[in-house]
């Protein structure tokens, strides 16, 4: 069952990724990205990482791609592009080379990890639970604490919360600070300068004024 879900979700993720780079229309690409992110969320679920799956959908599919679409719609870059013209010379061969390199690296990593990896860990969550509670647990019992078969497990999200606020609290706080700086920076960048307003940018290809009013002169 897990395998079937994996195959289907994996296929969907690949199709979404291919759509992302293949569609001419940017909005269609963004929607393929959503499909891909959804499939990744299902893959997370497959591995019992429910919190991660939910957060993936909330943050990525629900906020970041919405932002993408917002910008695409507002800036009017939703016209289909002409893919035969290459704006930067030599872009395609370099992209192919780098893509092949990344693929090779990924295959290498996956083959190393599948053999048991560098540390031989099968499931990270199980190890962390051991280190927190000091009792041996089974890795597949990370469902929740409503099991009626008697095993005591700590829910996924609580594990995450504990490690985040004890072992990795410094990284957490630094990330929070970083995000705050980003917000403050964005607000500062978007302020109006003192004095006159800057002229509005002209978007080429969009007809801002129509000539239809001239036809009504003799009405």
């Amino acid at each position: 069952m897990e395998f079937v879900v994996f195959i289907i979700a994996g296929l969907l993720a690949i199709i979404g990724a291919l759509g992302l780079i293949g569609f001419k229309n940017p909005v269609h690409s963004a929607l393929s990205l959503v499909l891909s992110l959804f499939a990744v969320a299902v893959l997370f679920l497959n591995q019992d990482a429910q919190f991660l799956a939910a957060v993936q959908v909330i943050v990525y599919a629900g906020a970041i791609v919405v932002l993408f679409l917002f910008v695409i719609m507002l800036l009017g870059v939703d016209q289909a592009e002409d893919l035969s013209v290459e704006p930067i010379a030599g872009q395609r061969p370099i992209a192919l080379a780098i893509g092949a390199g990344v693929l090779a690296l990924s295959v290498l990593f996956i083959s190393v990890a599948a053999d048991g990896g560098a540390t031989g860990q099968q499931s990270v969550t199980a190890e962390k639970v051991d280190s927190i509670t000091g009792t041996a647990q089974s890795a597949t019992a990370a469902l929740g604490d409503n099991q009626t078969d008697g095993t005591e497990t700590i829910p996924n999200i609580e594990q995450l919360g504990r490690t985040l606020f004890t072992d990795y609290v410094f990284a957490f706080e630094v990330t929070a600070l970083l995000l705050t700086i980003a917000v403050v920076g964005a607000v500062m960048l978007a302020r109006k300068p003192k004095g006159e307003l800057a002229p509005l940018p002209v978007i080429p290809g969009r007809s801002g004024t129509t000539d239809e009013t001239e036809e009504l002169e003799d009405a």
Binding site: Q50, V57, I58, G62, P155, I157
Partner: peptide, 11 residues
């Protein structure tokens, strides 16, 4: 009744 029911709602 997923263990992350409310997050599902938010998502």
């Amino acid at each position: 009744d997923p263990p992350v029911g409310i997050l599902f709602v938010l998502a």
